[in-house]
């Protein structure tokens, strides 16, 4: 997990699985990798910019938590993919979804015979 993207994924996964908010030190300790705290802070601030992570500024050191659960993000994404989130047609090119259900069913019966 040397890449920044890989680190972001690991940190996000940690925050999703954690019941409480974590400080940068907590994150580093739980990652179990030989990382500088500054690296972890960089990753956390990138995630904050992507609005994936919320920072609690009232405490010292700052504590971080996920803005939404893994499931909520998945649902948000799937809604975009399936076009159920309003006008999203131009955002994605889809393999499915352009076929009406009734026709897909007929196709399945046809392929089955």
């Amino acid at each position: 997990m040397a890449t920044l993207g890989g680190l972001e994924r690991s940190v996000m996964s940690l925050l999703w699985d954690s019941a409480e908010s974590l400080s940068a030190n907590d994150v580093r300790d739980r990652l179990g990798e030989d990382l500088a705290v500054t690296t972890v802070l960089t990753v956390l601030s990138r995630l904050e910019r992507k609005e994936m992570v919320r920072r609690e500024r009232s405490t010292r050191p700052h504590r971080y938590s996920a803005t939404a659960s893994r499931e909520e993000h998945t649902v948000e994404m799937l809604n975009e993919v399936l076009g159920t989130a309003g006008d999203r047609e131009a955002v994605l090119a889809r393999f499915i979804g352009t076929i009406p259900d009734s026709e897909a069913a007929a196709l399945r019966r046809l392929l089955q015979n």
């Binding site: 393999f95 499915i96 979804g97 076929i99 259900d101 897909a104 069913a105 196709l107 399945r108 046809l110 392929l111 089955q112 015979n113």
Partner: peptide
């Protein structure tokens, strides 16, 4: 076509189709 049919299918239909043989050519 099989990929299209399967990826648009509900879980109950998918099982049915998966059990079928590979005879799409016929239809």
């Amino acid at each position: 076509l099989r990929a299209l049919a399967l990826s648009s299918a509900g879980p109950d239909h998918q099982d049915v189709l998966r059990e079928g043989t590979q005879t799409v050519a016929e239809s």
